[in-house]
Write a protein that binds this DNA or RNA. Structure first.
Lengths: 336, 336
DNA sequence: CTGAAAGCGCTAACAG
DNA sequence: CTGTTAGCGCTTTCAG
């Protein structure tokens, strides 16, 4: 490796090490003359500072750790992108670890993140994380933000999506379009997130004065195309099928649409659909109306929480709520 | 930050700094007794080594840089995942920079990667990269591997997909299913990749003795749903529409299917479709037959090239070809 | 098998 | 405005 050091640059430019440091970092007074000399040498030699040395000395890095779980759902990828963008706007870079939901060793990953001395850690959806692991991070005063599925942890912040409101709005939207027999397909509410969406569905129904019909609620084990398809079969093959169905993931919608297609049922003519995530809905036939999360905001807020936690350390746990927006497309029929 | 150092551990365990280093790194002779003492202290205190210090001293990191371009196409995300997996199997971690196709500053990103002193750099699709930027990386003897869209560069390695063969096989598959009027929808072949796929299509046609019909070839500006839909309109609204269409991206297939859906044309009854990428095809209605790239292999080979380049430095440029596999689903009708 | 010693390249006081 | 100095936490000879 042919890496020059600051000392080399200093010698070449005829100045001291410190002066080079000042222009590299862009802070501290340096006369225009010397600054230009140094910049010229840096330009000519292609000198690039050594982050390891900077980090060692300053005890800071420009790295943000991100622990996420492998998932066919494009949602997590979008979160990751959003985080990346927000981080790089502030001069940070995200080191992402994607663990396998079943076999991934969370503890090892967190240790690696600590080893890198990241400026903060974001955890997106964290099944299988123990309080002990989190404690280790928090004990070292590394700012921690959790997204989507969160765990209570003293001293960490959380970002949640306004799932209940999002789901309620979706159902209300269907109601206002004249639908009264509205089905629900979602993951079994063993986690808060799913419970909120189901609750939103029920609130939406209640808001329209529609009595609940449990036979219209299909709970799946996970968010997969296959399960969406099974749910579709269950709902479509009923004698009295719903006029509309709200699903808590675009992935489920994909499967549901396959079930429709097999039966030669058309959307929205034969049945109306609303999805959730807004990840795949625009690509489907027909393009599906879906509940979109404010992705840009999500990353921004996560980084913001990380940065401000560093200042007022030991503060209370904070929680920020991300809004949702219903994106209208062509999958809902107006029944008037 | 409450980080202990190796010196702390040494003191606590009653051994020397060096001995702690040996057990942390797991190499060098240490008596069972002392090793256990050290391990106990590390376990109790939750000590985690400082990568910056390790890297500074050893002049090595466990980081692999990845430069990729922001793209709605899930293909790049899959490549990224594959790379991550392969890297972590060898104890490396991937630092990914996703730049905006138009505005992203490649030079700055590469500098940042150099600053991190990454063990190697992988570049996936690299429009807008100058030879100068690449030269800077290569000049510092950092192993470099390019994927998908590659640039010639002395001392760097490349991974290409067997696009021509993949496309040819797809067309041949349609031929064997009885199709003779086969359309093509793909991105304008201003890059090698697209040119190879188009050439594969032509070879497939030639193999079946089918004369080329340029009116059946639709070239788009980019891989988007919208362009796929436009292409669909163009091909479907012809008096003599093709019995099958091969498309060079699943994203295009999505749009094409929307055009079909609007016209109430059914796949594969009215028209047969084969996609490329195998990223979205399984989620569509109907599930679409698509050309899949051997993703697992891709990451493995990339990391392998990086690692071996470190040894036989200054070697020739190497190129490895990734095979494709046609995944059969329900979008092709047999015409007999 | 173990320890002492010498830095890696850089930052951050502190004097000039 | 500029330079000198002292390490950051770890790896790596080199002697015991």
């Amino acid at each position: 490796m042919n890496h020059l050091t600051m000392t080399d640059i200093a010698r070449l430019a005829g100045v001291s090490l410190t002066t080079v440091g000042r222009v590299v970092r862009g802070k501290g007074y340096v006369s225009r003359e010397k600054r230009e000399a140094v910049e010229r040498v840096i330009g000519e030699t292609g000198y690039v500072p050594n982050r390891a040395a900077q980090g060692l000395k300053s005890n800071r890095t420009n790295l943000i750790g991100h622990l996420t779980v492998l998932n066919p759902n494009m949602l997590y990828e979008q979160i990751s992108r959003s985080l990346n963008r927000a981080a790089s706007e502030r001069g940070y870079q995200v080191l992402t670890y994607t663990v396998d939901r079943e076999t991934g060793d969370r503890g090892k990953v967190l240790d690696e993140l600590i080893a890198q001395r990241v400026a903060g850690i974001v955890i997106t959806s964290c099944p299988g994380l123990s309080g002990e692991m989190l404690g280790k991070v928090l004990g070292k005063h590394i700012p921690l933000v959790m997204i989507e599925r969160t765990i209570e942890a003293e001293g960490s912040d959380r970002i949640a999506v306004a799932d209940l409101e999002g789901a309620r709005e979706a159902v209300d939207y269907l109601f206002r379009r004249g639908h009264r027999k509205i089905g629900f397909v979602g993951k079994n509410p063993d986690q808060e997130v799913e419970a909120r969406r189901l609750a939103g569905y029920r609130e939406g129904l209640a808001g329209g004065g529609i009595p609940e019909d449990e036979s219209l609620v299909v709970l799946t084990r996970s968010y997969t195309v296959e399960e969406g398809r099974e749910a579709g079969k269950a709902l479509l093959d009923r004698a009295d099928r719903p006029s509309a169905v709200f699903m808590t993931s675009d992935l489920l919608v994909c499967g549901f649409l396959q079930a429709c297609y097999e039966r030669n049922l058309r959307v929205p003519d034969d049945i109306s659909l609303v999805g959730y995530d807004n990840t795949l809905s625009m690509m489907l036939s027909p393009p599906v109306t879906s509940v979109s999360l404010e992705m840009g905001e999500l990353g921004e807020r996560a980084v913001e929480l990380l940065m401000t936690r560093g200042e007022n350390r030991e503060g209370e746990s904070r929680e920020v709520l991300i809004r949702t927006v219903l994106i209208e497309r062509d999958s809902v029929k107006t029944l008037f």
